[in-house]
């Protein structure tokens, strides 16, 4: 019965959260500007969970996550522009296109480079980020609609935040189910000790490629949603610095904590905007304060803010071993 109770509680929680957010939007507390930030935060949640699966749960260091977000954003944007006359179906299709493109590229690039380990893997993915960035800068030579360095415009925009909310909730459920599945356990085993995992029959290559592909596909979804949130797409939004942002979200949230990633992603997206609001005339200090917050937080809690913690409803009841009397329930 425990399990059903958990599902019901989680569902109630999601609905309550939705009602609160919707009420804030309806009453105008969250204006159009903050709504875009909220959408952005939810996009961060999705992309962050992708990196969390790659790095937090499988231990594969990726410094190029924004490249996959960019691939998702541009492919989805191109699709949405081409099929804009189909309305919402075109947009929905563009999300699928974003996921598939980023996932396929992730798979193709993952097969060779996942042989590398730790820092070297990070550097290779970082290099891939630069290659994609240069590619996007020159994308107008292949697809004029992509605009290259001038940026891409004309992607139909989502006016409602439901798209983002539903996508984020679905991704959280997906990530949770994946992490606690057989495959997710295999990923954690790889992270803890590759050799030991191999000895007990987990194929490191297959598991790593699977986790990487899923993480990249989620990044693609984040990108696809991103291109519907901002009327102007620029390769600079998918540079190496953006990859660093995703890494910060996952590490500050605590490696191997889904709830940590979600909360930190939302917090990080809002922090940057709050600083803009609070500092006002001292806006130039934004970067300095942001850097200091980053340094202080990581020194005070080196395992991440929510390291080693998990929201109760994200842990399946079966996995928990509470000592209790065996009584028919």
């Amino acid at each position: 019965m425990d399990k059903n109770k958990q599902v019901i509680l989680a569902l109630v929680g999601v609905v309550v959260l939705y009602i609160i957010l919707k009420a804030l939007i309806m009453t105008g507390v969250l204006g159009p500007y903050w709504q875009i930030i909220l959408n952005y935060a939810l996009i961060y949640v999705i992309g962050g969970l992708g990196l969390s699966i790659i790095y937090g749960f499988t231990g594969q260091f990726s410094l190029g996550h924004a490249a996959f977000v960019g691939i998702g954003a541009y492919s989805a944007g191109l699709f949405a522009i081409t099929f804009s006359h189909y309305g919402a179906w075109g947009s929905l299709g563009s999300l699928v296109v974003g996921i598939v493109c980023a996932g396929v590229v992730g798979y193709l690039i993952g097969v060779p480079i996942l042989r590398l380990k730790s820092d070297y893997l990070g550097i290779a993915t970082l290099g891939f980020n630069f290659i994609v960035y240069d590619g996007l800068q020159n994308s107008d030579k292949l697809f004029p609609a992509m605009g290259g360095a001038q940026g891409m415009t004309g992607v139909p925009q989502f006016q409602t935040f439901e798209w983002y909310f539903v996508a984020a909730v679905l991704v959280v459920i997906l990530a949770r189910n994946f992490v606690f599945s057989t495959h997710g356990r295999a990923c954690t085993a790889i992270r803890e000790n590759e050799t030991a995992a191999n000895v007990v029959g987990v194929s490191p290559a297959r598991t790593k490629i699977m986790a990487f592909t899923i993480g990249c596909a989620l990044a693609g979804l984040a990108g696809a949603l991103y291109c519907h949130n901002y009327p102007y797409l620029n390769p600079d939004s998918f540079s190496f610095l953006e990859s660093i942002n995703y890494l910060i979200v996952v590490v500050l949230g605590g490696l191997g904590s889904l709830a940590g990633t979600v909360i930190t992603a939302v917090g990080w997206a809002f922090l940057l905007e709050l600083l803009r609001l609070v500092l006002g005339p001292f806006y130039a200090f934004r970067g300095v304060i942001y850097a200091l917050i980053l340094i202080v937080v990581i020194i005070v809690r080196s395992q991440g803010i929510f390291g080693g913690m998990e929201a109760p409803f994200l842990v399946p009841q079966i996995g928990r071993r509470k000592p209790r009397a065996i009584v028919g329930s």
């Binding site: 300095v288 850097a291 200091l292 340094i295 020194i299």
Partner: peptide
């Protein structure tokens, strides 16, 4: 601490120097 924590603080130091 874990290597990644030091890496994040290095990134923080980098941002600090740039923006400062």
């Amino acid at each position: 601490a874990a290597k990644i924590s030091a890496l994040i603080s290095a990134i923080g130091a980098s941002f600090f120097l740039e923006y400062f």
